[in-house]
């Protein structure tokens, strides 16, 4: 049962809520209790802009359970405008023309579901930032 586990991450998954260290300004996504940079423990909540560029990626062809029906699909590491890096799927694109350095923007999408009658898990994915 994934309900509490997914629900707990709602701020991060639904609107990319991150934590900005009040002392050194380092942004952590997801939020942490200890700043990895300066060990400070006080943070402010911020929402990431969703804009970033692709650092590296792969195209998953042998997919894990729950993702078989959407394979092949791209997963990459995106460096957000705010400097923090996020892993996510890249969709609405021609898989074979993806390039590192591509400008991407986040979209709210379905990631997975607990079968046809269970919980639908929503979160961010990335799409090419082409102004639509």
């Amino acid at each position: 049962m994934n309900v509490p586990r997914h629900w707990r991450e709602t701020p991060e998954r639904y609107r990319m809520e991150a934590a900005k260290c009040r002392k050194c300004g380092k942004i952590s996504f997801p939020a942490r209790l200890i700043c990895p940079e300066c060990k400070n423990k006080v943070f402010d909540k911020i929402n990431l802009s969703g804009k970033g560029k692709l650092l590296t990626y792969t195209i998953i062809r042998t997919a894990p359970e729950g993702f078989v029906d959407i394979a092949p699909y791209a997963v990459g590491i995106v460096e957000m405008k705010e400097g923090v890096r996020v892993m996510g799927q890249i969709t609405d694109c021609d898989l074979l023309s993806l390039k590192t350095g591509d400008k991407l923007i986040s979209r709210f999408r379905r990631i997975n579901e607990e079968g046809k009658t269970g919980l639908i898990m929503y979160a961010y994915k990335f799409v090419p930032d082409v102004g639509i």
Binding site: T58, I60, T62, P64, V75, V86, I111
Partner: peptide, 8 residues
Amino acid sequence: YEAFHGIT
């Protein structure tokens, strides 16, 4: 934050 997104 990784496996959730379908990475292997």
